[in-house]
Write a protein that binds this DNA or RNA. Structure first.
Lengths: 202, 202, 202, 202
DNA sequence: AATGAATGAGAGTTCATTCAT
DNA sequence: TATGAATGAACTCTCATTCAT
């Protein structure tokens, strides 16, 4: 057992996670068989158990993988020195772009996590809500700096942003030709200004 | 025996649909067994097939049930004589309230419809996209009356509203004590005015 | 309960046997459901049990029905006053013609009797071998009258006749346009004279 | 491990075919369960699917196995240099002997092949009718050489021979002590000379 | 005489999992 | 490190059968 983190075993395990992500994304957790996963990886069904204790562990790893840098990137955005508007744009861009980049693992996380047992799901949920909390923090900061109205409920705001992004995420995954940047602009616009014609209202 | 349309068979079939909705919502389509459904209904597994030709037909019926008046109510909102703001509020209220009323079937519709075969899925999708189109129409009208800014992309707007509602829907289903009306207010506020402090921006 | 043997019950029971024969002939015993039979008869599945104790009893009755006059007719041929050749022709004609007339019940008897339990099968087998014994008797008589060679094994001969007829029976059922009378002529010819050119042989 | 074509898998698959033949012969295709087959083979039900894709594939393999050298042997008889009488005797011997050797698979082929799907049945039927055609060819040759009468319908003759053999085949399978060679003699005698006393007739 | 509703046993099939090699 | 063979539990679905009405 060499100390190098890229021993053959580690490499193969990673390949297994990617194979599982790919198959789960395509057929869903219950629609995929361990044989499918092994085949995509180029090994035999039984050999898969060298890398996963169970099919559920495979799902768990995929979800973790899908969630990880999704959450990680949020941390660096929140920590950066930028005005509110820039952080918001960065967040939305990061979130929506993800559906193109590593959509498989992420898609699996979104669609199949309910098949994990309580404890694993909770662990992932914490990572995910860490994500939301970071976003909420950005709104709070925005209020302090005066960029966000004082009466805004920041928790609500963070949920809303995520909801909008996810809703479009589904469309994006379905249609690979969709113009992502237009969606991002529109989303930022909505969050900042809503749709109402204030001149009219006033 | 009156000619009433609720013979025993109809009644039981309805009970079967409700049982299926409840089980699917909890465990997902593939995670649920026909035995689970039958048990929740209080009959034996084999008897379920007196009411459904297959497990998939059960899913189909649940989805239809979940979608039906959800779509229908939208039509009457769109057709009514009210200003934009009132229609928007009515829509969001209707959408979010649904997660309390008939949440199971609706949740199933949202999460599991992709397991239906093409033709059934298409039929439901038409109902569903009719819903979104009605909503888009409300925004278009709002533009004409000057209540909505002319630069707003109405298709985007309709998707955004749905995304926000669904995002909160999940929370609402999870936590039965959540204050729905606050969420509705916040959502309407976001859609109308965004979160930015316009005095600051200007 | 009137003494008349054509009470409604008897009539209906007969209809049930005919329906069963028709369905079994088409789909085989295991391929047919009691629902199929009931439907062909125009009643509901449960009602069938008013006429049959079980599906197997239905098969049993069909087989009996198929076998009965098949065997009965043989008796009258054997008892008649005709030379050997005429009796042989009558037997073959009767046997082969049957595949056109009442082929359903007979076909069922031939193909599905093995699904009956021992005792019923034995009972039918006796009827059937009675048939063969009658035929053997015809050959014995033929020997006595000098029409059949003394060295012929009459038991073998009876089996051979039945084998030839059954073999063609299958073809006849399959192809409704086949010329039955040519087959009968050929069969009689074979049984009497074989195929060898005796002038050559001598 | 030599490159011998009898790896463990092949061996076991063969055992599975034999087990299936045995069970099907006894209870018929629909009367047999996959559990029956597995048990006769000494493995568990699920394991059977390691060797067969489906129950129907098992039937298909059994039929093929039953039919194969049955048809093959006929070819070499037809091609050999022998007088008609010798070829006829060889054919009948081959056909009847088979019921002792590999009787189960053959019985299954005769009785259950109709449960195969069109394409597989056609493929087997071609093998089978090749058999009959070879036999017909033997009769045609016999006519040319003068050993068979010119007025004999050779197609009829071939069917008749097969019918006689199959009819006795059933008896032979049922009673293991039966004297096969007497039956063969009798059959050849019938085919050549019929049963009639020509001296009397003339 | 007939039916609607329900049942329960069993069918074929799939598949995650194990383990000796 | 990987595999072939086997397992057993679960699955969906079918159907002969029963019985109150």
């Amino acid at each position: 057992m060499p100390a190098g983190e890229t021993g053959k075993y580690e490499q193969q395990r990673h390949a297994a996670i990617r194979a599982a992500a790919s198959v789960f994304a395509e057929k869903g957790f219950h629609g995929s068989s361990t044989r499918d996963i092994a085949e995509r990886m180029g090994i035999k069904q039984g050999s898969l158990y060298y890398y996963f204790k169970s099919k559920e562990e495979a799902l768990s790893e995929v979800c973790l993988y899908g969630m990880q840098d999704y959450a990680g990137r949020m941390v660096s955005i929140a920590a950066s020195e930028q005005p509110f508007r820039a952080k918001l744009t960065a967040t939305i861009t990061s979130h929506i772009t993800k559906y193109r980049e590593k959509n498989e693992a992420l898609k699996v996380y979104n669609a199949e996590r309910l098949y994990l047992d309580e404890s694993k799901r909770t662990r992932l949920h914490e990572l995910g809500s860490g994500y939301r909390q970071q976003l909420e923090g950005i709104f709070v900061e925005g209020q302090k700096s005066g960029e966000v109205r004082a009466d805004v409920d920041c928790r609500f705001a963070s949920h809303a942003v995520i909801g909008i992004c996810n809703s479009w995420g589904e469309q994006i995954v379905r249609d690979p030709d969709m113009d992502i940047y237009e969606i991002i602009d529109n989303s930022v616009g909505l969050i900042l200004n809503g749709f109402s014609n204030n001149k009219h209202t006033n």
